[in-house]
Computed example of a mutant assay.
Amino acid sequence: MSGRTGLDRYRREQRLGDALESPYVVHLVLFLAVLFIVAPLVWELLTSLKTNDAVYNFNYFPRNPTLESYYIALFERGYWRAVVNSIIISSASTVVVMLLGVPAGYAFSRYRFPFDNLVFVFILFTRLFPPIGLVVPYYRIMTEFGLLNTKLGIVIANVYLWLPLVVYIMRNFFITIPHDLDEAALVDGCTKIQAFRHVILPVVMPGIAAGTILTFLYSWREFLFAFTVSTDLNSMTIPVSTFLFVGDTSVQWASMAAAAVVATIPSALVVFFFQRYIVVGLTGGLKG
């Protein structure tokens, strides 16, 4: 009797598995997933084509589409300055992180020194600490060094946030490269620096590209530390400037949506054109 019950259970599970593998079910799940992701973006775009007053009419589609909210956000509120600031800060942060992270990843993958694993774990541990817990000391340090309302202060925060990630990714990329490649370059007369520059770096270019793109995207959307030290448009980034559309008694939904659309365009283009490197970076960073 128990054997028959087990057989019936197996058949039910098999029928359920066949149903879940049906193309209709797969397409339905994919459609719901895409809808869940795209719906907020569509709402954001439609809201940006309304006026701030028309938002409260609760119409999903704008009756009289207008670009007024874009004009208010970019020019009347000076949002274009935040866009320029974000480009400068994200680019500078990315350059510094990669200049430090790539050699550090190579050193951790090739050289042994006292407490090397402990140092590497400590670097990763710095990113496990909740960033909110560092806001007060970060603000005090920026105040002491006169870096409030400066782009350099935000760049320093971004380097702290994303350097451990790049070190981790690059270390695991370098680990996949055989040591024989280094030794062959040394036998051919290269110094260690020349071997690193001319032989090893070209092999890990996908990892470098992935680290560069991820660092830029993460720096582009960083809010907490930028909000802590930025109070004027000379250093304010896109996330902070977008938050300012939330007032004490009202929210300028249309203008905020327009600002969000403008902020999304560069990052969306980066993801669209370099998605292969992003996937390589995330999967490569999980190896080793």
Rank of each mutant, 00 (worst) to 15 (best):
P164D: 13
S267G: 14
Y70A: 05
V29K: 07
F61H: 08
P178C: 05
G281V: 09
L161C: 12
R276E: 02
L233Y: 07
D180L: 09
Y218G: 09
I177M: 00
D116Q: 12
A209S: 14
V29R: 05
P130M: 12
L41H: 07
T66R: 02
Y106H: 11
L161N: 02
E13F: 04
V229N: 01
K151P: 07
L181Y: 11
I132V: 15
V159T: 01
A263R: 11
A92E: 09
Q252M: 03
G146A: 06
V25G: 02
V155M: 03
W80A: 03
W43Q: 13
G146S: 13
F245C: 02
G78F: 01
L134R: 04
K287H: 00
L161Q: 08
Y168V: 03
M1D: 10
I132G: 07
P65W: 10
R15G: 05
F36P: 07
F129C: 10
L46K: 13
G146P: 08
V204A: 06
K192A: 13
E44N: 15
L181W: 09
S93V: 08
A258R: 03
R77W: 03
N57L: 11
D53A: 14
L217N: 00
T94K: 14
L269P: 03
T126L: 14
A157P: 03
N117W: 01
V155C: 00
A263W: 09
I72A: 04
M205K: 04
L282I: 10
V42Y: 12
L46S: 10
S93T: 07
E44A: 15
R63Y: 01
D116V: 05
L224S: 09
A263C: 07
F225I: 06
Q252T: 09
V95P: 01
R197W: 12
Y160R: 11
N172D: 09
I156S: 08
M236G: 12
A157K: 02
R127A: 05
D53S: 12
P178S: 01
T215L: 00
W162H: 13
V251N: 13
P65R: 12
V119G: 11
L41R: 00
S109A: 15
V121Q: 14
I37T: 14
V83M: 09
F31D: 04
G288H: 08
V102W: 06
T191H: 06
S91E: 10
L286W: 09
F113T: 02
R127I: 02
D116S: 15
F216V: 04
A33I: 11
G17K: 12
I213E: 05
A209Q: 12
T242A: 14
G211P: 05
L99D: 06
S255Q: 10
R140G: 06
Y24H: 11
Q275C: 03
Y277G: 00
